[in-house]
Design a protein around this nucleic acid. Structure first.
Lengths: 121, 121
DNA sequence: CGGCATCCACATGGATACTG
DNA sequence: CAGTATCCATGTGGATGCCG
């Protein structure tokens, strides 16, 4: 608390009570969450079923729950853009969009270290 | 397939069959995995219980299973460094260590966007 | 120390159906 | 379209105990 100054790196929590990795992992370490955020980054604001299609076979239930979770954490915003016919739009909040470096690193790593054949190892 | 040339960024899988995010998320999107990798990055090679202590109250069972999973994916290596008394050492493989940028980004993001009070929101 | 075995509670997730 | 409700199989995870 007394420091928290200017180092952008050195985020390791050596001996600290609170660890940013743990909480971040709790947030986006949920299998589908990174994918959803990625899709929203990639395709921009999307409708429910549009998102569902892009997230490769996730069920309505799980997507619904995931989106709710993401909303609660302020990463995703839901807007009703039309009443008749009923249309909603899910988009990333500023905080959600700020996850881009994380997602980018994940994707970059996956692209470098995981090949399709490897995924079923 | 015809491209895949020199862009270090632009890892988005627009219309691609295989998505690096999805597979990466399957790998390290497991709540404890990023933390374990982080601890190994942070503290270096560790014994089982040492790791267990550092991962903030994870149970033996879950840690054991997680480590097994990480080993199967070639991210973590297990070495028996002593027979009597019995001692093992878990360390990151080269591939595992290559996750550092991902973990760093996660930690950096968490530090910036998640405060302790926020984690229980 | 470094685990695995067991039991059991609860969370997760798919399928299906149905509503506004 | 945008979900929610229900049912149910499976997974996950904690507690405990034990063994090499």
């Amino acid at each position: 608390m007394t420091e928290g100054a200017s180092e952008p790196l050195a985020v390791w929590c050596a001996g600290e009570e609170w660890c940013p990795i743990t909480t971040t992992a709790t947030l986006i370490g949920k299998k589908w969450h990174p994918v959803i955020v990625h899709r929203l980054l990639d395709n921009g604001p999307s409708g429910f079923n549009e998102l569902k299609e892009n997230v490769d076979g996730i069920s309505s239930k799980v997507l619904s729950e995931s989106l709710e979770d993401l909303q609660e954490h302020g990463l995703v915003e839901r807007d009703v853009v039309n009443e008749q016919p009923f249309r909603v739009s899910y988009s990333l909040t500023e905080r959600g969009a700020s996850l881009e470096p994380v997602i980018t690193e994940m994707a970059a790593w996956g692209k470098e270290h995981l090949r399709p054949a490897e995924s079923e190892a």
